[in-house]
């Protein structure tokens, strides 16, 4: 099967998943025990107000029509309006999204730049103290709760040592022109180096907290996949040819050893969306995670639906990309 055929097949597989996800998200509001409009306006809300909200959300129409309305709206990037703020859900999500992406990329960068070298070193120094410390480190990484680690980092580096800020994306009162919503990029574009430094300092602790789990997994997978590759015949051949150790590692081994690592990174980007919710809660990071938590507190169901739908959509796209990249870099894989 050639790669295009595979991509097409994989794309077709997305369709039923997408349909199911949209159905599930649509039903969030209908699965609430009781009258959703009444629940949203609780504890105040006169019968007239409840009736008005019900009408506004289209809850008085037949279920099938409601679903059609919802899905047609979603295709046109209209996910309804937030009950709490009255703003379109899409506007709220897009306003918060850059913050989450910036945080996730920062964490991913740390996880990859630290994780892969550590994994390679652990594999090369197998069964030494260095190897054992890397394994212990990766075990601890998946066991320590992200939110607790975040709080400890705040306590040590922000509250006690006062090296880094406690929370938020930027110091209050510092001006930064908002162009893309990615503060680092905005600061670079406007040549605002004072803000660039401030934004970077705000990004460090949240990124480290969010990076721990992917970092731990990348170390583990890089190590085991590197050990696998290093025992292959072609590595022995390279050694027998008298190639220097560095060259064998970088030119021959790493290339093949990284294939499973890429899959893990892909899967982790999805899970990091979950981790980002907790990290954002710890650092009051104004991203999509704090948005959904606030929405749950406020019983703002259109907003909850919107955020859940967009995140699931992103997960589906990432999984699709990972599968395609995987098929591309490892031609042996065809399902």
């Amino acid at each position: 099967m050639n790669i295009w055929k595979y991509i097409l097949k994989r794309l077709l597989m997305v369709v039923p998943t997408l349909f199911g996800v949209s159905l599930l998200v649509f039903f969030i509001i209908h699965l609430i025990p009781g009258d959703p409009a009444q629940v949203m306006l609780y504890p105040k809300g006169t019968p007239e107000e409840i009736e008005a909200l019900r009408h506004k959300l289209g809850l008085d129409k037949p279920l099938a029509i409601q679903y059609l309305d919802w899905i047609i709206g979603a295709v046109h990037l209209d996910l309804g309006t937030s009950v709490f703020s009255g703003e379109p859900v899409v506007t709220e999500i897009f306003r918060r999204f850059p913050a989450t992406i910036e945080l996730t990329l920062g964490a991913l960068l740390i996880a990859v730049l630290v994780g892969i070298p550590l994994g390679v070193i652990a594999a090369r120094k197998r069964n030494t103290l260095i190897d054992y410390s890397c394994i212990t480190f990766s075990l601890l990484g998946v066991s320590i709760p992200v939110f607790w680690l975040g709080l400890m980092l705040i306590f040590i580096f922000a509250a006690t040592l006062d090296w880094l800020p406690v929370s938020g994306r930027i110091t209050m009162g510092l001006s930064l022109e908002n162009i893309t919503g990615f503060y680092l990029l905005d600061a670079l574009l406007t040549g605002n180096f004072k803000a660039l430094g401030d934004v970077s300092r705000h990004l460090i602790l949240p990124s480290i907290s969010l990076a721990t789990i992917p970092l731990a997994l990348i170390v583990r997978v890089t190590r085991s996949s590197m050990l696998d590759v290093l025992s292959q015949d072609y590595i022995r051949t390279a050694k027998a040819k008298g190639l220097p150790g560095q060259r064998i590692i970088f030119r021959h081994a790493l290339k093949n050893a990284l294939i499973p690592v890429i899959t893990v990174i892909g899967i982790q980007v999805g899970s990091m969306m979950g981790g980002a919710i907790l990290t954002e809660a710890v650092f009051s990071w104004p991203g999509i995670g704090t948005l959904i938590i606030d929405a749950i507190y406020n019983r703002d169901y259109p907003l909850i639906q919107g955020v859940v739908f967009i995140i699931a959509l992103i997960m589906i796209i990432i999984n699709l990309l990972v599968d395609i990249i995987y098929a591309y870099i490892d031609p042996r894989i065809r399902y």
Partner: peptide, 11 residues
């Protein structure tokens, strides 16, 4: 199960 697996667990 595919549908459920396409949500981040915490979400």
């Amino acid at each position: 199960t595919d549908i459920f697996l396409s949500f981040p667990p915490l979400l």
